[in-house]
Simulated assay, not measured.
Amino acid sequence: MRRLAPAFVALTLLAGCAVAPARPADVVPLNHLPALTGDYFRVESREVGRAFHIYVRLPEGYDPAAATVWPTVYLTDGDSLFPILAANHLFLTYDDGLPEAIVVGIAYGGFGPATNRRNIDFQAPGAGVADQQAGAGAFQRFLKTELIPDIERRYRSDLSRRVLFGQSRGGAFVLYSAVTDPDLFWGRIASNPSITPGIESLLEPAAPARRRDLGLMVVSGTRDRPDLQAEAADWLSVWQARPERPWRLRSERVEGGTHAANATDAYRRGLNWLFDPPPEPAP
């Protein structure tokens, strides 16, 4: 067999490289997913000491120059929940009449333990929890002093209608936030919260609240792990017996719901309840 000339080989390789044109720098895949139209930016958190990737879905008809402001939903575990729940919010607007919303996904950028530190950021203090593992306080300060002010500077966000959604350990962080800083969010949804360790700090008396229209929903699937269902039931039984709690509290069960696959059901039920105000008390 004759050997190919080096120049011919080089030309062949160059021709192969030219088949796939380079993608323009200003085009990203999300540009072609209108249900996720919005923005992205990176935050280097001083409070947590790590970076987060922030994905933002903007409502249909969003106009940064208009006077309209929008409810804003903050999602923990944005790596997985943002593309699911942010896009689904459009259908909830169509079918359930929910208001459009800005949806903010707080992502780590990967699932590996070196990158994804949800085991620290969502962990409340409690028995058996080392101080360096209980990062919920720092993560909440990141939300309160860094991320939320940044979102409310960048976008037409309604400061009176912030909602926090969390799943599993993220759901436990929702409960931590509700107990330690009730006013930070108008509404909260805890989906299949994984509460222990750290349940002790979630049963302490709640911090005082200025607002009287706050709401918290806890959602459990009937096919979630039995121990997690029992934890949620224990937490609810304590707080349902406390008339001094700073938020309306509601629990829901998703028949046949599993630990993670029914996050859309929890999101839908929680938002429908939060945006359906309770009747005025009789005079």
Results as ranks from 00 to 15, higher is better:
Arg269Trp: 09
Ala67Arg: 15
Gln123Pro: 05
Pro278Asn: 01
Leu274Phe: 13
Arg253Asp: 15
Ala87Val: 00
Trp273His: 11
Ser194Thr: 09
Thr76Met: 14
Arg248Phe: 12
Val238Ser: 13
Arg118Thr: 06
Ala87Leu: 01
Tyr108Ala: 08
Ala127Gly: 12
Leu36Ser: 01
Tyr108Val: 04
Arg269Tyr: 08
Gly78Asp: 04
Ala86Lys: 12
Asp183Thr: 06
Tyr74Pro: 04
Ala22Val: 14
Pro59Phe: 08
Leu164Asn: 03
Ala136Trp: 09
Gly256Lys: 06
Arg2Pro: 15
Glu44Gln: 15
Pro34Asn: 10
Gly198Gln: 13
Arg250Ser: 11
Val9Phe: 00
Leu33Asp: 09
Gly137Arg: 14
Thr72Lys: 02
Arg212Gly: 14
Gly215Asn: 06
Val163Gly: 00
Gly128Lys: 09
Arg153Lys: 13
Tyr62Gly: 02
Leu11Val: 09
Phe82Leu: 03
Ala67Glu: 15
Thr12His: 12
Ser160Glu: 14
Ala22Pro: 04
Pro193Arg: 10
Arg242Met: 06
Trp186Asn: 06
Gly61Asp: 07
Tyr55Leu: 12
Val19Glu: 06
Leu164Val: 01
Ile151Trp: 07
Ala15Asn: 05
Arg225Pro: 07
Gly61Glu: 04
Leu98Ser: 09
Ala232Arg: 04
Leu4Cys: 12
Leu11Thr: 03
Gly170Val: 00
Arg2Val: 11
Arg50Leu: 12
Ile120Glu: 13
Thr68Ile: 11
Ala206Cys: 14
Asp63Thr: 05
Leu92Gly: 12
Pro83Cys: 09
Ile189Ser: 01
Tyr267Ser: 11
Ala172Lys: 09
His32Asn: 13
Gly137Ile: 00
Ile84Arg: 14
Ala172Arg: 08
Gly128His: 09
Ile54Ala: 02
Arg42Met: 11
Ala65His: 14
Pro208Val: 01
Thr72Arg: 03
Gly215Trp: 03
Asn192Tyr: 03
Ala15His: 07
Arg253Ile: 08
Ile54Cys: 07
Ala124Ile: 05
Asn119Cys: 01
Pro21Gly: 08
Leu236Ile: 02
Gly128Ala: 08
Gly137Gln: 13
Thr222Trp: 08
Ile54Val: 15
Thr258Ser: 13
Leu143Gln: 08
Leu249Thr: 07
Ala22Phe: 00
Ala282His: 09
Asp150Phe: 03
Leu159Phe: 00
Leu274Ser: 08
Arg269Thr: 00
Gly170His: 08
Leu236Met: 11
Asp96Leu: 13
Ile106Trp: 10
Ala22Lys: 13
Val104Cys: 04
Pro246Phe: 01
Ala232Glu: 06
Pro83Glu: 04
Val69Tyr: 04
Val28Trp: 01
Arg225Ser: 06
Glu47Lys: 12
Ser45Tyr: 02
Val238Arg: 15
Ile199Trp: 14
Glu255Pro: 07
Glu244Trp: 11
Arg269Leu: 15
Ile54His: 06
Pro149Gly: 10
Ala18Gln: 15
Val28Gln: 12
Thr72Glu: 04
Asp95Pro: 00
Asp265Tyr: 07
Leu85Gln: 13
Trp247Gln: 15
Ser220Phe: 00
Arg248Pro: 00
Tyr108Pro: 04
Phe165Val: 13
Asp26His: 14
Ser201Asn: 15
